[in-house]
Design a protein around this nucleic acid. Structure first.
Lengths: 154, 154
DNA sequence: CACAGATAGTGGTATATGCCACTAATTGGA
DNA sequence: TCCAATTAGTGGCATATACCACTATCTGTG
């Protein structure tokens, strides 16, 4: 292996993406912090808000998140009274969630903070470039990767 | 608040970035899995490899990662014998790390797998677009956000 | 030299996320 | 109708990551 001096950070798309995510998350987290929410939690509340009492599986799919991970992440929000869960009327396997009154208030409070973070970020990179970046990232999140089986012999 | 139908996933740059990171990480993780490493661990081994017995603080800075987070992440790799730590000769506060023989072998093994993931990803989005994306993400990771103090009165 | 202040890491705690094994509920046949 | 296969979530466990409080070192200055 050769130790080549790299332009930028690393040629690895994954490492680069994660690195940027760490940095940007910290920024949004810092700005949203006064509300008591983390950026991820804000996003989750928002996603639940825009959905119509979405099922957990639906949210997981939209957020490209593992279902069990979503369950774990939801817990603090339920514990703090921002979200409530209930079984679907027709299919009791399905668990739906909605914001509580308190959750909606918290979302509105956090949205004000979020706006300043969003604004500041877009002021720095440019509104259009931010939109382009999001489009590219949406695409990455939607790709159909098909991991090749290790032994496709069978 | 108005529930507007959004193009793409969410207008939030942070949520979009994290979502893409989840998806891409799972892909790289899956491909690298046969080596027993996670994508993040691979990236860390690589970073240590290209550095010259880097100090933890240096790695944390390069990876835009919290120092304590790095410490936690390093533990399994040390436990498994891929990395070893030692105190800097001149400043005993500084802890440096290097790959063990085993760690180097593992890095080489994982690099073969990583290449297929990297290749497949770039085949899907295009080599140039991937490079553009990385450049944009590098920029995001390097931005100087300056969170405004809540009470800038002083 | 002594000490206040700055630096580098550690450990604890909490959220973020994923995989796996398992349970509950539903559904599609035979 | 009844059971095998499928679907939706849960709980346990492990890594990823952050912040905070604390310890161990250095360093600059009187």
């Amino acid at each position: 292996m050769t130790k080549t001096a790299m332009p930028g950070f690393s040629p690895c798309n994954n490492a680069t993406l994660r690195r940027a995510a760490r940095k940007l998350s910290r920024f949004y987290d810092d700005v949203i912090a006064p509300s008591g929410l983390k950026g991820t939690q804000y996003g989750l509340l928002y996603q639940i808000y825009v959905g119509s009492e979405p099922a957990m599986g639906t949210i997981a799919e939209e957020m490209v998140m593992d279902l069990s991970a979503l369950g774990h992440t939801l817990k603090p929000l339920i514990r703090d009274g921002y979200i409530e869960a209930f079984a679907d009327k027709d299919d009791r396997r399905i668990k739906r969630v909605r914001l509580t009154t308190q959750g909606l208030a918290k979302l509105e409070e956090a949205t004000k903070l979020w706006s300043t973070a969003q604004q500041r970020f877009e002021d720095m990179v440019g509104r259009q470039r931010a939109a382009d970046l999001r489009a590219m990232l949406d695409e990455v999140a939607e790709l159909d990767y098909e991991v090749p089986p290790a032994a496709p012999s069978s």
